[in-house]
């Protein structure tokens, strides 16, 4: 799965969690840019991504995430590592 496919999937997940069907996200979008993306929904977004991509995101990694692009990269890295196993 390449970055743009992951971004599309992540956008879908985030728009489902926030219940905003027409959400458009870029790699540099941050939580502050999006209405309703609070700490409660942030947890749900991470858990939903874990479930969707079959990966586990660690506490330290979550704390370092700054924007959608970094989340996409992290997921890409983890799915590639899993595929290599």
């Amino acid at each position: 799965m390449d970055k743009s496919a992951i971004l599309a999937e992540v956008t879908e997940i985030i728009s489902d969690v926030l219940d905003q069907p027409d959400l458009i996200l870029g790699l540099d979008t941050t939580a502050e840019d999006v209405e309703g993306w609070d700490s409660f929904n942030h947890i749900n977004i991470v858990v939903a991504c874990e479930g969707k991509f079959g990966v586990k995101i660690n506490t330290a990694e979550i704390e370092e995430l700054r924007n959608v692009g970094e989340l996409v990269e992290l997921i890409e890295k983890k799915t590639l590592a899993r595929a290599a196993r």
Partner: peptide
């Protein structure tokens, strides 16, 4: 239960 989530959000039952 997700021990990481317990420390982050005090959610004993994981959202999933």
């Amino acid at each position: 239960h997700d021990p990481g989530l317990w420390h982050r959000a005090k959610q004993e039952i994981s959202p999933a």
